Computed example of a mutant assay.
Amino acid sequence: MVALVDIFVAVFVLVFLVPVLAMLAVLWYYFRLGRSLTHVGRRLGVRWWDAAGPVIAGTGLLALVALPGDVPAEGEPGSLPFAVGFGLVVVGTVGAAVAIGNLDEYRQVRRGTDAMAGLDEGPTIVSGTGEVDEDAVTAPLSGEQSLWYSLRVTEDRGIAHRTAPAECHYERTDARFVVDDGSGAVVVDPSGGSVRLWGRPLMGGEDVRVRGGTGSTDAPDLAAVREQAGLDADPDQAFVEHRLEPECAVTVLGTVTRDPETRYPLVSDGERRLVVFEGEAEAVRRRLRRWVRAGAVIGVVGFAVGAAVVLSVGGVV
Results as ranks from 00 to 15, higher is better:
M1S: 11
L4K: 13
V9R: 08
V11K: 12
V13K: 14
P19N: 04
A22K: 08
L24R: 11
W28K: 13
W48Y: 10
A51R: 07
P54Y: 01
V55R: 09
P68E: 01
A73T: 05
G75P: 06
P77W: 07
G87Q: 02
V91L: 11
M116Y: 05
T124K: 06
T129I: 07
E131K: 11
D133I: 10
Q145N: 14
L147W: 00
R157D: 02
G158E: 08
R162S: 09
A164W: 07
H169L: 04
H169D: 10
F177Y: 13
S183Q: 13
A185P: 05
A185Q: 01
V187F: 08
S191D: 14
S191M: 15
G199H: 04
D207T: 06
D218V: 01
R226C: 12
E227R: 11
A238P: 08
F239N: 04
R243H: 09
R243D: 06
V256W: 12
L266H: 05
S268D: 13
S268R: 14
S268N: 13
L274K: 09
V275G: 04
E282D: 13
A294P: 07
A296C: 02
V301F: 12
F303P: 03
G306Q: 04
A308F: 12
S312V: 11
V313P: 00
G315V: 01
